[in-house]
Design a protein around this nucleic acid. Sequence first.
DNA 1: TCCAACATGTAACATGTTACATGATTCA
DNA 2: TGAATCATGTAACATGTTACATGTTGGA
Lengths: 177, 177
Amino acid sequence: MSLKHSLLVLLADNPATGYDLSQQFKGSVGFFWNASHQQVYKELKQMTEAGWLACDTQAQTERPDKKIYSVTQAGQAALQAWLSQAAKPHKYKDAFLIKLYGGRHIPRPALVKELDEHIAHHKKTLHKLLEIESEYHALSHSQQKKFELPYLTLKLGISNERNWLDWAQETREALNA
Amino acid sequence: MSLKHSLLVLLADNPATGYDLSQQFKGSVGFFWNASHQQVYKELKQMTEAGWLACDTQAQTERPDKKIYSVTQAGQAALQAWLSQAAKPHKYKDAFLIKLYGGRHIPRPALVKELDEHIAHHKKTLHKLLEIESEYHALSHSQQKKFELPYLTLKLGISNERNWLDWAQETREALNA
DNA sequence: TCCAACATGTAACATGTTACATGATTCA
DNA sequence: TGAATCATGTAACATGTTACATGTTGGA
């Protein structure tokens, strides 16, 4: 159920379109949740039918109409209900680690090559997160206060990526030894 | 598709029952993949129908018969095919971080309380992983060599948990400030 | 002239979760 | 006497992925 609740949290800050929300999942929010645009549109439809969201359609001549969603009182209540229950501990799933675990079935160089690809990807992610962090640091104190909690999640993202990269470096050496 | 491939990797090491495999997901393997027992039995059935697994039924008088699965040649081929393609980068999903991100909707003490619960859970996980690590260290050199790759995944699990706990401690202080 | 960004979806399929179901053994 | 472990599943439901579908604008 958490996609619905992620959307509620995002929409509680700012009414937005399905497209906007999908973009947020590609940015910093994507560090802890994400979904394809198809899935987002599907959920928004369901949530609107359930009365959690109101939809304001803005006609556009040259592009598909924009549908701006905002949280209703029922949506607020649903969010509160969800927030008041403890979240289940997060479960990590990483296909690359299965490969590494069963690495004896693949030639070493192939394993190292794939590790390198993942390293490149994680470096890119880290840079993106660090950019977002420097934008945060450039804000005024009052603005920083406003984004205090999102910033805490960003910090986990950053240290997670750093930790992963450190491990990957060691692992790379171990594989080549 | 990765549950099927996790099962192939595990079964390539040792033929096992659905129950055994489910138990492995509760142990160290659970750090990077997991599934409910229902899901495991479902997949084993499908994989057997697809010819990837052979099933040897051991009759037991007092308990349900044990079904011991092993990888067939077709299963080996499927595993190889999967291993030869790059895995997609892992996507992190953590409902607690959504809550933290949208933490302004909850009273601070409630947020801290839930953080504490997660801290307790992560500490437990870390201890479990450290226990497995000390079992590994107690092995002979030749045995250690055999479990070299699984050990690398374990090391990521351990540093990940430590990193999470460090972040959680800082976050706890920031929330109480 | 082609690619990325904007903006929305449907349909088919794959995967995962929750509730229910059975029943013996062993340890506290 | 009650809970945990062993051992297997079915059925209903929820969620997520992949392929397909449409069409404009603005920049390299």
